[in-house]
Every structure is written in structure tokens, then in C-alpha cells.
């Protein structure tokens, strides 16, 4: 056991839930804000994506850290749930609740569904396993700018007709025409296009919207619960924490579902 011996104690387990939860919440907030940049257009969004990719080892450290948090969060919650179920072997024939809300009572279920959703999400956009064709989008960046290069066929007749102001450059074996002098030329993953194409599918979008709403339910209890577990409960501030928790959950949900919705309605990526 060793490292996992904290599982024996429900309170230490709660601390693990709170700390890992806290990290995951911070990640989700960052993730929501980062991806909201899709509303600012392809270049900004892809630059952001490239920045993240460019982190290299740091990105992997973050990824592994988040993965560990997620696994601990999951294992601990399942272990707690099993324990809690065994503490109440006989159900009430007639049960009503005074204060326990639907969100707080269903944490394990929303959590498990979110986990399933997350797995799909990672396979979809991070690993490109579910939709390989839509995943495989690239764009050429000339002098640090995207969208200024136009792919042209490597046909001498056409090349001959090009205006002299145009420069040509070859990236990854393809020929591009550019209006300015080419200093640097490279390709990068066109995450913008990938996302837009991904969310064009209404079913995929629907899955995301549902997943995010579940996440919202989870967060509305989780955030204020985190404060309680960490021992912060004061009659002066707790009502605000509860309100804040709900508000943050709603904000995260709105941020995240705005992406598929704007894409479905054509507000974002309509030209692709």
C-alpha cells in the first residue's frame, strides 16, 4: 500500500480530493480561457496551440501532473463511494432531502461521466484517434504569419505566369506562393481548422455540450466543497463561496459551450 494508505482515512481522502480537485479546477479554468481564443480567429488560436506544443518537456510535466491528479481523484472517489455505500446498507423506504442537492448527491456519477467524456475528448482532439482525417490539418507559417501563403501546384506553366512580386517557397515538399520575402517558412498543426471541422458535426457538438454541462454540475458543488474540506467555513464568507462556486461553474460552462455553439451557427470558422 504505502503511498495509498491515506485511502484508509476518509478525511485524508477528502484532502486528496480537494487538492487534486483544486488543481483540476485551475486547469479547467485555464483551458476554458485558452480555448476561448478560438473566437479571436485562426491565427491567435493556432499561435496559442503552437505555444503550448512548444513547451516541450514542461508540457509533459504538466500533462503527467494532471494525469496523476485525475487518477488520484478518481481512485479516491471510487474508494470513498464504496465505503459510503457500505455505511448505509439499508435504504429508507421513503427518503427526502432537506439540504443535500442533486449536484452534491450525484458527484460520483457526474464525475464518472465526465471521466468518460474526457477520455473521448483526449482521443478526439489530443491524440486524433477518433477522427484522424479532421485531426490531420496543417497550415504554413511564413515569417511567423499564417494565412499569407497559398499552395500552388508545382507546374512550370503556372509558375511561369506568376507575377514577379510573388515569392515561392517549398515547405514539406509542397510549393507555396507568398507576397513577401520569405525569411522563415514552416508548417504547424491547424488546430483551429481541426476544432471547427470537429464541431461541425452536430452529434459531436452535442456530446461536448452535455459533457460540459455535467462538468458544470460537478464544479458547482466541487468548488465550494473544496473550501469546506480545506477547513474554510465561516458564516460571513461561506454564502459567498457557495455563490461564487455556482457562478464559476456557470462561467466555465458558458465559455466551453460557446465554442461548439458558435461553430455550429457559423459564427466561428464559417469560411472554412
Amino acid at each position: 500500500m504505502g503511498l495509498l494508505s491515506y485511502l484508509k482515512s476518509t478525511i485524508l481522502s477528502k484532502w486528496v480530493m480537494a487538492i487534486t480537485g483544486c488543481i483540476l479546477v485551475l486547469f479547467i479554468c485555464g483551458h476554458a480561457v485558452g480555448n476561448l481564443q478560438i473566437l479571436l480567429g485562426s491565427d491567435t488560436y493556432n499561435t496559442y496551440a503552437a505555444f503550448l506544443q512548444g513547451l516541450g518537456e514542461i508540457l509533459w510535466i504538466i500533462r503527467i501532473g494532471l494525469f496523476v491528479c485525475l487518477v488520484l481523484h478518481l481512485i479516491t472517489s471510487i474508494r470513498l463511494k464504496l465505503l459510503n455505500n457500505s455505511a448505509r446498507p439499508t435504504a429508507y423506504q421513503y427518503k427526502s432531502f432537506l439540504k443535500a442537492k442533486l449536484t452534491s448527491r450525484t458527484m460520483i456519477w457526474t464525475g464518472i461521466m465526465i471521466f468518460a467524456f474526457l477520455t473521448y475528448h483526449l482521443l478526439h482532439f489530443t491524440a486524433g484517434v477518433t477522427n484522424p482525417v479532421e485531426y490531420d490539418q496543417h497550415e504554413v507559417v511564413i515569417n511567423g504569419k499564417s494565412g499569407i501563403a497559398q499552395e500552388i501546384p508545382n507546374d512550370p506553366r503556372i509558375l511561369a505566369q506568376l507575377p514577379p512580386t510573388l515569392q515561392t517557397t517549398t515547405v514539406d515538399g509542397k510549393l507555396y506562393a507568398v507576397q513577401e520575402e520569405v525569411k522563415t517558412a514552416e508548417t504547424r498543426h491547424d488546430v483551429y481548422k481541426m476544432v471547427v471541422l470537429g464541431f461541425r458535426n452536430p452529434i459531436t457538438s452535442l456530446v461536448y455540450i452535455i459533457g460540459v454541462i455535467l462538468l458544470g454540475f460537478h464544479l458547482s458543488h466541487a468548488i465550494q466543497s473544496m473550501f469546506q474540506t480545506a477547513g474554510f467555513n465561516h458564516p460571513k464568507y461561506t454564502p459567498w463561496i457557495i455563490q461564487g462556486s455556482n457562478a464559476l461553474a456557470v462561467i466555465v460552462v458558458l465559455c466551453l459551450i460557446s465554442i461548439p455553439i458558435t461553430i455550429l451557427t457559423g459564427l466561428v470558422g464559417g469560411t472554412i
Partner: peptide
């Protein structure tokens, strides 16, 4: 069982003992 901060206890408590004490105890226990 363990506490998952549903606060049903506080609502059912005939003496209105507050879950504030659970929060305090979480800190103490850690």
C-alpha cells in the same frame, strides 16, 4: 461513512449544530 459535504446532517440536526465544525475538524485532522 465519509463526509462528502452534502450538509444533510446540519439540516436534520435538532440542535442546529453547524457543519462549520466539520470544516474545522478537517483542518485539525490534517
Amino acid at each position: 461513512g465519509g463526509c462528502t459535504n452534502m450538509y444533510e446532517c446540519e439540516a436534520a440536526c435538532p440542535k442546529n449544530v453547524s457543519v462549520r465544525f466539520i470544516a474545522k475538524m478537517n483542518r485539525d485532522y490534517l
